[in-house]
Amino acid sequence: MTVVIGFEGSANKLGIGIVRDGKVLSNPRVTYITPPGEGFLPRDTAKHHQAHVLDVLEKALLEANVKPSEIDVVCYTKGPGMGAPLVSVAVVARTVAQLWNKPIIGVNHCIGHIEMGRTITGAENPTVLYVSGGNTQVIAYSQKRYRIFGETVDIAVGNCLDRFARVLKLSNDPSPGYNIEQMAKRGKILVPLPYVVKGMDVSFSGLLSYIEDRAESLLGSGQYTKEDLCFSLQETVFAMLVETTERAMAHCGSKEVLIVGGVGCNVRLQDMMEKMAKERGATLFATDERFCIDNGAMIAQAGLEMYLSGQTTKWEETTCTQRFRTDEVEVTWRD
């Protein structure tokens, strides 16, 4: 039996999860929510994490009913993410690892998402669409690496959605993306928006400027509602994502597709991906907000795989890095 604790705080979520042999024992999380029209800044986010991290840790241990002595290894997010929030959480992970005298592992955040998704859904060798506020990647495994087949060439899809939500002054509670999703359900008219796909790559920055520039006049004309704009934005950006994912599946001959990352809990995106998968005779795997959105258990789960395959992080290397690509990690736990 291997018990792992994982610390995550690379963006505005702070989560600590405890996993025993692939089973999630506890996974509490708090989110730093900013007022409508505002994004989260590194300094304030770090302060939020610092203020809550010990409470969340206590909750994680209590809910899991696990004593520190029963834990085998401490894992934390090494990157990618925002520097100050990452460090604020890592320092706690380093401290408890020393107090409890446990080995420590620095985990790549993206790998955390992938391994959590695989564990929860049982997908074996899926093409992965990883979509969140900071990442948009189409990934497939080959020869000891999660290789990036497609990616955004500019901003992440979640960033595009978040910034559009700011234009409409939508609430950031529980998340801007969730509120766009609810509004989009009531949208009817499709506004033509730039659709930019380059092979397996996508681009959102042009689309974002386009709609930022025109949102006011489109709404002012009385022809379109806020709901229509949300609907059109979702229909367009999700079609781009499903298309590039399908291209990667065709290219790799893959029969499984897994969606991970915060945007992955959007039901419309899942629904579109499901239709695409069915047409190709493939299977869709997706999770809900508990595991799609950043959480501690995913770091614990990826750390568990690393630990069981013999990896631990040397003490001098338990640093953080804002830039840490998915394909930099050697996947020692898969054939």
Binding site: S142, F149, D201
Partner: peptide, 16 residues
């Protein structure tokens, strides 16, 4: 440049 970039990543990810 982007055209070559798209090829490069497809190439290197498909053929390690």
């Amino acid at each position: 440049g982007v055209d070559l970039y798209v090829l490069e990543r497809a190439f290197l990810s498909t053929h390690p």
